[in-house]
Amino acid sequence: QEFTTERCWTSRSFQILRAQNNYYELLGVSTESNAQQIREAYRKLQKKHHPDIVGQKGHEYTLLLNEAYEVLMRNDLKRKYDESIKQMGIAFGENNLPLGNSTWKGPIRSQALFVDENACIGCRECVHHASNTFIMDEARGCARVKVQDGDMDKNIEVHSYTTQLLCN
């Protein structure tokens, strides 16, 4: 008994805040997309990345895909999510870019970059080396991704889309 715990809370909302990569971006749809379009995008991506087709390496991707799909298909969760990105967008308002909505250069790939805000120390190194990809968010004191695939890969140390690119 002494060692038991008490539940604090559990929900998808925690994931929403933590998920640095935008769900809309992951699915390759716009924020105005309707359920039909989201479902279509989801199906197309499932067929491409399902572990039955590509093996274990599809696991991480489909994990996020399922998460994004559930949130965007459920009205209550979607509203919450939209609100949370809007709020964060306001916090980032300086650059006039909605949060997380980095744009793609070239075809959409399965990997996307993002900056781990907690780990970024604001050294601007990344902005200097890959200025087409990163942008400095002065309000937050950390870097952000502006354009996916904006620079040559060698300028960006990408390990995988889940490995957070540390700015140091």
Partner: peptide, 10 residues
């Protein structure tokens, strides 16, 4: 697949 988390306290 799914990955979810919850917060539990002492």
């Amino acid at each position: 697949p799914v990955k979810m988390d919850g917060v539990f306290q002492t």
